[in-house]
Design a protein around this nucleic acid. Structure first.
Lengths: 225, 225
DNA sequence: TTGCTCCTCACGTCACGTGAGGTGGC
DNA sequence: TTGCTCCTCACGTCACGTGAGGTGGC
């Protein structure tokens, strides 16, 4: 919280220092590489030194967050930066992409069953416990990954009632995040909704990692190391 | 729970099928690559087909888990596999590496504070809420990642009482997993304890991903997409 | 014979890191 | 002049993916 005066621009080393708290692995070479790939375009001094304005740093932060939390390849990040409002995400998840019609991300029941490799009765259970639900008469793209993972767990002997525990835990953490971003959501300024969503996903990503670290520690204590 | 008869060996495609639940991104080419790098050595049929025994599959699972959960480079994973008992981990995490003596994985309070970039009062809170606790007068390696992540969340305005929600959720999921592996733990056969631990970590990994997928879906419904 | 699985080997790719050799600025 | 920061450019590296061209087994 050292209140620095607002500088007009920063050198690459200063940018690195600003980012290295949140992204410890970043190096100068990475920033130069991102410029060479066209993801950022900092100004230059007469002698060729990069001059980063605040919006350049924000853009870097966005790129690094997208990489860390959403595992997006740079090509996709660049597309999103270049056209920030168009919903041009045509199947860029590693899953899915099962030959459903044109640009449809919705799945029929049959597609979901086949894509997840589960029986109809198992899907019934997932719906009953609220892990998956229909939107209209089809299923959203989330349903596929949820069903896949539930199926994987079932092979370990994890039963539907156990899944309910996970669902409840996820709900609690989600509502926590909603509480935290509620003030952002209530703002009526331009782009406030998107920023709230972005922040919510960032918090979700970090809290998932915390959750994982805690479970790791607890399993260790239980002698399950 | 399809009780399959214990097979002597599996083809590469069958291995892929066994692993793809927990590791959806793995492909045949990766398995071949891992062999070419000397991390696995499956037997061969007279005609050159790879024959994976169960221990080969276990080894693969170990490698994939180490990559996904601990971000270890293959070189380090190979070293650990080649010398499984020597604690040769001399600062191979991307974090830390703060000049703590010889092979100590334990941290002093000062090291933990510095490594996580937090104030002493914040660590007090983390201890109070049970997110971090001492072992003797030092802290385990888990404490560092937990503290770092908690610090990252605090920048978003997530408070200590929120962290308690995450802790509680993690505890519930952990005890669920303990229930599932309890039968394995009670076995007194050779290696049963290790297998129970391995299974527990696998289940934990998948349930974390399910948890993440559910939160993603819930945030989407809340208009935070 | 037909599918299907599996094989090798060369090359490509993505996201950087390294290091040589040099310039700019207080 | 001395450090220090910064620059480019070529090359290396890590962890795979792709695709051609072929063989094995029920």
């Amino acid at each position: 919280m050292t209140a620095q005066p607002a500088r007009a621009y920063y050198g690459i080393g200063e940018v690195l220092a600003q980012l290295s708290g949140e992204f410890p692995n970043i190096r100068e070479s990475k920033i130069r590489f991102l410029e060479s790939e066209g993801l950022i375009e900092p100004a230059r001094s007469p002698s060729g030194y990069r001059r980063f304005r605040r919006h350049d740093v924000e853009r870097l932060r966005y790129i690094l967050t997208a990489q860390r939390d959403h595992y997006l390849p740079l090509r996709v990040i660049k597309e999103r930066l270049d056209s920030p409002d168009s919903a041009s995400s045509a199947g860029n998840t590693p899953y899915g992409q099962a030959g459903a019609g044109a640009g449809a991300t919705m799945l029929t029941r049959a597609e979901l069953l086949e894509g997840a490799g589960i029986e109809s009765a198992f899907l019934d259970e997932l719906e009953e416990f609220g892990l998956v639900h229909r939107r209209g008469r089809q299923y959203g793209p989330d349903a596929l990954s949820v069903a896949r993972l539930a199926e994987a767990l079932s092979r370990f002997g994890v039963q539907a009632r156990h899944l309910r525990v996970i669902k409840a835990a996820a709900e609690r953490e989600t509502s926590l995040i909603e509480q935290v971003v509620a003030p952002l959501q209530r703002q009526r300024s331009a782009g406030a909704a998107e920023r709230a969503g972005q922040t919510a996903r960032e918090i979700a990503a970090v809290s998932m990692r915390l959750h994982a670290a805690l479970m790791d520690a607890e399993l260790g204590e239980a002698g399950l190391a």
